[in-house]
Structure formats: structure tokens, C-alpha cells
Amino acid sequence: MSGESNGGFSCPLPFHENSVVTLAHGGGGNLTRQLIEKIFKPAFNNPDLETEHDSAIIQVTAGRLAFTTDSYVVQPLIFPGGDIGSLAVNGTVNDLAMSGARPLYLSVGFILEEGLPMETLWTVVQSMKRSAISAEVKIITGDTKVVDKGKGDGIFINTSGVGVIEPGVKIHPRQVQPGDAVLLSGDIARHGMAIMSARKDSGFQNQIESDCASVSGEVRNLLDVEVHCLRDLTRGGLATALIEIARSAEVSIDIEESEIPVCEDVKGACEILGFDPLYVANEGRFIALVHPKDEDRALHIMKKTGNDARIIGRVKESPEKRVTLKTRAGSIRMLSLLSGEQLPRIC
């Protein structure tokens, strides 16, 4: 995994001296400079990257800016289909995309744990570089701190991002109207189950790949049709996203279980652990609530990614603000928020 994701290059820091991150790498002295010059700067190299000054300076155009921040903690740091680096870039890019913005710039804050293998940091940073290129964003400012061994979990990353919203783009739950179609961009629950199955104690033999990816390009194509609301399906999954939108938009949403794609491996892992895929996290899937006149065009655009996009339901006028699921068995039940994380069942 790491050799491949490094694109054939290995970490440029002299390993005999610096095979692991030490407290001195966060001390602001020579080793900090070495980390910036040898690892961060080559990866994030762009004209706007500011390593000599306290802030990056960007030209502001007329119009509206979207601004978001998110922090990333995950174990294992590298998992099938991604790593904490690709997660930190794509997660923030996707948050910007969900407001209809074109993502432009990211900041990156690293909190590294003393003893982290430099090779791991290198792999993660290279992955961030590739994700940023693919999502067409620039990483223009950053910070690194190192905490004592045992006080972190390898790497924590915070990314903040800004993007521009073109005139006329209005994406917000308040735009949602009865009759809107609910489109899902692809099969669900991959990321959460990839992380579960990648943990060394899971005992799963099949490798489930995370869906971790930028959806920014797909969303930009979608802005040609009348999209009312977008939401990425991260923590809490599809069910939580739908419930939040129904509450904010003060509408009800009906969805069909048989229209929600879940790949066989993910379905199997969910069955074994007693997880409901509707609540499992995704990192490259979103829902779009689209005016019915444009639903076929929107579906056509979303299907181009090959991720099995579907129309899974519809918005209806109702003061009850609830999400109902028509089950495969033919019954109807209400979806509600979970109290916390799903826990594996006992038997």
C-alpha cells in the first residue's frame, strides 16, 4: 500500500537520524524547518503556499465565499481505499461542495504523536497532495505540533477550506420543496465498514474499500440543474442526513429500501456485526434534492461516476418532519437518530 501510494518515491528525510517524529520536530527549530522543507513544501508546492510568513494571502473576488473546517481522527491511519490524509482533504472539499461552492484553498493543521514513523507521515502527506490535485484545491497554509508519546493517536489532522459560490447558486435545506426527488450518488456504507474490517481484530477476510473521494467535480456538473439541497453522508450515514434535512426544511421524506444500493461485501459485514447500513459513514457519497422537472437530468449526471446513483425517494409536504422507509418486506417504518455509534451485537 505505502509503496504504491508513494508513487515510487520514498521519504526524503535521512532515516538513520529521523525515522520517527520527535518532540523537536514540533519545536520550531531546525527539525521543524527540515520537516517543512523536505516533506510538506515539496508535496503542497504551489505559488500561494506561504512558508515564510504567518498567513497565506489570497485574492478575494466579488461574490460569496464558503468557509468550513473539520478535524480527522481515524484508526488505522491507512486503510483500503484511503488514509487519514485523503480523508482530511476530501472531507473538507466535500463539505464546501455541499454548499454549492467551488473549493479553492485548504489549510492543514497536523498534530503528530512522538514516535510516529516518518514513512507514515510521508505516505499521508503524499496522499494529501494527490487528493488536492484531483479535487483542484491548493493547500496554502498549515501548522504542525508534536505531542508526547501516548497523548495522540499517531496523526490528527484539521483542515479548513474556502470556496467560491457562483452567483445564482442557492443550495440550502430551506430551498427544499415538496415533490423534490431525493437522489443518492452511489452505494452506501463503504467507508465505515472499510474501517471496521481494516482493524486487525475484525477477522474479516474480504477487503472492503472506502468510498473516500472528492465529489466536487460531480457536484459542479450538477449545478446545471435545479438542485435545492446537497448533503454528504458522513458520520451517521444516509439516515442521519435525511433526518437532518427533513427537520431543517420542515418537510417529510419517503424513501424506498429496495432503491438503496449496498454492495455485497458491505451488506455481509453489516449483517455479521448487526449494523444498519443506513447509519454507517460514507466519505464519497451524497444526496441531492432536485426539482422534479430536472430529476432525470440530475440522475444522468450522477450516473456518470459509475457509482450506481439512484432516485431513492421523494419529499412531501408534512408538518411532522419525518423520514419514512418502505422496507423490502413491504412495511413502512420511521427512521430516527441513533443515540451514539452503532455497537457490534452480541449474538
Binding site: G330, S331, I332, I346
Partner: peptide, 24 residues
Amino acid sequence: IMKHGIQELLPPEVTLLHGPGCPV
């Protein structure tokens, strides 16, 4: 039964009671 909404599919004459078989 609850997840799949089975009770609502059954004839109204059938009442389901839920037993003690939850280890937790």
C-alpha cells in the same frame, strides 16, 4: 420484527409479545 415492520403486516388478530431473550 421492529426493523422490518412485521407486526403491521400480520392479521390484526395476532398480538406479539417480546420475551426476555436479550442478554444485555
